[in-house]
Simulated assay, not measured.
Amino acid sequence: MVSRFILAISTSSGVAKVAAATEPLELNAHAADLFNFEITDYKSQSAQLLPMIQQHLEQANLKPAQCAAIAVDIGPGGFTSLRTACGVAQGLAVAWQVPTVPLTSFECMLTAQLPDKPVTVLMDARLNEIYAACIQRTAQGTQWVKPPHLLALDELQNIHGSAVCDAHVYAQLHEPGSVAVQGAVCAVRLAQLAWQEFEAGRVATPFDCQPLYVRDKVAQTTTERLALKHGAV
């Protein structure tokens, strides 16, 4: 019988991904996946997310009283998508009176099989840019060797060492293989990492769970668009 579970919510990739994982039975063991699902229709995510969470909880015979925490992927990612995930996580955490475990999209890209050393994580940021960070998971949590930042797409050639890339970035590499592997944001992995954070006491209040925006600005003003059109700088 399930004693406690963590509910994990990720929408940073444009696909809503949700998973629930039970408490690990042994130290350093991975949490067992209870259920996971995706909502690929971007336009209906905000409307479908809560009803589908409720549906899967009922099918798995899980009660809110068994929830230890709500884990959420805070980004980087799409502006509206991140707000949806954080808003749902905050609402459930307040209603169920549990803490949140905010983790980044970079951490959700890490697989359990990666080597115990710093890894560069690269994700498509559109506009010919890449979200990048160099991280390492330790018993103390995530160590940020290089914090989240933006790279121009043509700077991919300067990436050295172990790397995990989403599908779009991986396709841009000239020589993928030995040092770069393809990955994806994973809600199950988010839930597993969240258990590690929860058991170490690294949790947040619901309203401390806020989106991570690496890019400060994604749109041009009317004046800026006109200036570019007419060749002004």
Rank of each mutant, 00 (worst) to 15 (best):
S81C: 11
K146C: 03
S13P: 05
S162E: 15
Q136S: 10
A19F: 02
Q90A: 07
L49D: 02
W195N: 03
A133P: 00
Q136Y: 04
Q140P: 02
V169Y: 02
Q90P: 06
G201P: 09
G183E: 02
V188M: 04
A8Y: 03
D33V: 14
M109F: 04
Q140F: 09
N158D: 14
A16T: 05
L127T: 09
A16N: 00
L7N: 04
A16V: 00
A29G: 07
K217R: 15
P118H: 08
A171N: 14
D73H: 03
G91F: 13
E199Q: 15
I74W: 04
A47P: 00
R126I: 01
A152R: 13
R4H: 15
A93Y: 08
G75S: 10
T221A: 12
V233I: 14
C108L: 12
E58W: 00
L110K: 08
A95R: 09
T221R: 12
A204T: 06
V88W: 02
V2T: 15
T142H: 01
E107S: 13
T221D: 12
Q59K: 14
P76L: 03
L7H: 06
K217Q: 15
Q157D: 12
V218D: 14
V169E: 05
D124I: 08
H168T: 15
A204W: 05
F37Y: 12
D33I: 11
L173T: 05
Q172I: 03
V181G: 00
C86M: 07
L153Y: 00
H230P: 01
Y170E: 07
A85D: 01
V203Q: 08
C186I: 01
Q113Y: 06
I135Y: 02
